[in-house]
Design a protein around this nucleic acid. Structure first.
Lengths: 209, 209
DNA sequence: AAGGAAGCGGATAACTGTGTCCGCTTGTTG
DNA sequence: CAACAAGCGGACACAGTTATCCGCTTCCTT
């Protein structure tokens, strides 16, 4: 699965150096990291970076694949919780917390790259969230018109706040996510208009700048 | 108040042409409008645009000052509403609606430029929202720990969705803003952590990309 | 109607970011 | 220990953006 010829030893070493440098830079700086910067930070030529990771997406993908798997595991755990409403809450808080802690991960999850990865990640997580949501509705903890895709917009919304507040008030997202989650509770009103279709959701998420 | 020497007639005409072209381009395209593009669209030399509006902020400011005034008026109207909770809701929906309808305005409101204009706009609107909020709390329609700055984050959050969904599902923000607003209602839980200070809020808003 | 200030246009310099290419180095294999 | 493929580095070509400068034009004043 790793593909044809194994890398030469020095090549493998360089690949790791690039990945390490990139992970650090992305976590600190976010998207605006150029191949050149990564190369310099890794003490490697630009060509080397381009050879191994032709586009920024390739690089992001290599960096954040395992983190995405973690999100999947969190979803499973949430599903196992006793209180479905609480499980859903905890899951979303954890997701946002991960985003808040790593700019790179956030931009990966909320950007066009994730779309390419939809097969592995999104489509694995979506049904779990759906189940979580159904159970929470049955308990009357979530308004019935809410769809999984409404819920999936919460990290998008809150992400706008984490991005901006990271260096100023790094914990403020907790208030905001609480407001959003409480907004899922049953009320006398209804949510207006139709929810997103899955295709629309993909599009919306992939428009991350 | 308009300043020293009145512009020569041709200069004034050109200024208007630039403004008109820029307004159109911003509404369509959003932030990524260069002085050169504006100049071409206005059928004017680049120099002319730079002379009149040295930075993009200057241009934005000239374009969106009156729109900001409109937001102020909306706030006043909301304050005059019978039902304070409903007034607050309507106000926020209207603000988001304006944002959704004009990329340029959105980026102006949610970007660093607005900060410079804080004197005229933010500081005029803030107390009105504060009053609105106090009345809504008195009626038990809003949870007591919510501050005006929590409320002010709602357009930021929802803005992330409008930006991304504009061309895909242009009305989805209505669902999202409803969720956020319903999250302001009293519940048994509390909002975690301290709210933003005004200075922090300024910073957060001004980090618009 | 004529002089001079105000304004105009757009070529152009200065940067920044992206991506390629190719002569040289290094690891691997027999 | 060759000898050759794989890999390396980074100069450089290219593209897009910002901002300036200056010779020429247009308007206003008297």
């Amino acid at each position: 699965m790793t593909g044809s010829t194994p890398l030469r030893r020095d090549a493998a070493r360089n690949r790791e150096r690039v990945l390490a440098a990139a992970r650090r830079l992305f976590a600190e700086t976010g998207r605006a990291v150029t191949h050149n910067e990564v190369a310099r930070a890794a003490d490697v030529g630009v060509g080397t970076v381009y050879r191994r990771f032709p586009t920024r997406e390739d690089l992001m993908l290599a960096l954040f694949e395992d983190q995405l798997a973690l999100v999947g595991r969190l979803a499973d755990e949430a599903l196992a919780a006793d209180d479905p409403g609480e499980g859903l809450r905890r899951f979303l808080v954890q997701v946002v917390e991960l985003q808040a802690g790593d700019r790179g991960l956030q931009e990966f999850m909320l950007g066009p790259q994730a779309r390419a990865r939809a097969g592995a990640a999104t489509s694995r997580i979506a049904p779990v969230v759906g189940a979580l949501l159904d159970r929470a509705k049955e308990c009357g903890q979530v308004r019935p018109e809410v769809t999984a895709l409404d819920v999936a917009l919460i990290p998008v919304m809150v992400g706008a706040v984490t991005t901006r507040s990271r260096d100023v008030a790094p914990e403020i997202w907790r208030r905001v996510v609480t407001i959003a989650l409480d907004g899922l509770r049953p009320t006398d009103g209804e949510l207006p208009g139709p929810p997103l279709t899955p295709a629309q959701f993909e599009e919306v998420v992939s428009r991350g700048r």
